[in-house]
Simulated assay, not measured.
Amino acid sequence: MNSTASTVTSGPPVATVLRGESADSIHRAREATRAFTGGLIPAPDPAVADTLVLVVSELATNALRHGGGHYTLELSASPDTLAAAVSDPSPATPRERTPDLNDGNGGFGWHMVRHLTSHLTITPGPGAGKTIHAQLPRLRPSPTS
């Protein structure tokens, strides 16, 4: 595991990188995300930090299950945003499917990721694979009146 925790005041974003190849790596990805957000100054909104942990967990799980069995996670932050980029060796883009409410075979993750993020893109590479970039605002948006 290659990771660094840093602070953000101004200037370029800081990053944490983690590689995963097993189901245990999902837990490590969640822990690394918690450590990453916990080390940021100023601290992000706690609800946004929890949301980033959930998004990372879903993207890493999908990369293991559907993206070729391993992934690279890169976490970054700027003064206004938190971001996660998950790369895997499969060129296939995620597809939304009907959630399986009876047998527990999934179908919730991609829909959830799309709903929870403020910006989501998929880019080709590295190699023949893809990278999914998910972004959240650092502060929880104010409720509208």
Rank of each mutant, 00 (worst) to 15 (best):
M1D: 06
S3R: 08
T4K: 04
A5V: 13
A5L: 08
A5Y: 08
T7R: 09
V8P: 01
S10E: 13
S10K: 12
G11I: 04
T16P: 01
V17I: 15
E21N: 13
D24L: 09
S25Q: 04
I26Y: 02
I26K: 03
R30F: 00
R30I: 10
E31R: 13
A32I: 04
A32P: 11
A32V: 04
A35W: 13
T37I: 04
G38F: 03
G38W: 01
G39C: 03
L40D: 07
P42Y: 02
A43I: 03
P44M: 09
V48Q: 15
D50C: 03
D50I: 01
T51S: 13
L52R: 05
S57N: 13
L59G: 10
A60R: 06
T61V: 02
A63L: 07
L64E: 10
R65A: 08
H66F: 15
H66S: 03
G67W: 01
G67I: 03
G69P: 14
P79S: 15
P79C: 07
P79N: 10
P79K: 14
S87Q: 07
D88Q: 08
S90M: 01
P94M: 03
R95S: 12
R95E: 15
E96Q: 09
T98W: 08
P99A: 08
D100Q: 10
D100W: 06
L101T: 14
N102I: 14
G104T: 12
G104N: 12
G106Q: 11
G106E: 11
G106V: 11
G107D: 11
G107M: 12
G109F: 02
W110V: 12
W110C: 02
H111W: 00
H115E: 13
L116W: 11
T117A: 14
H119K: 12
L120S: 09
T121V: 04
T123R: 14
P124H: 02
P124K: 05
P124E: 05
G125W: 05
P126C: 05
P126R: 08
G127C: 00
A128G: 13
A128C: 03
G129C: 06
K130F: 00
T131N: 12
H133V: 05
H133L: 08
A134N: 04
A134T: 03
R140T: 02
P141K: 02
S142Q: 10
T144C: 13
T144I: 14
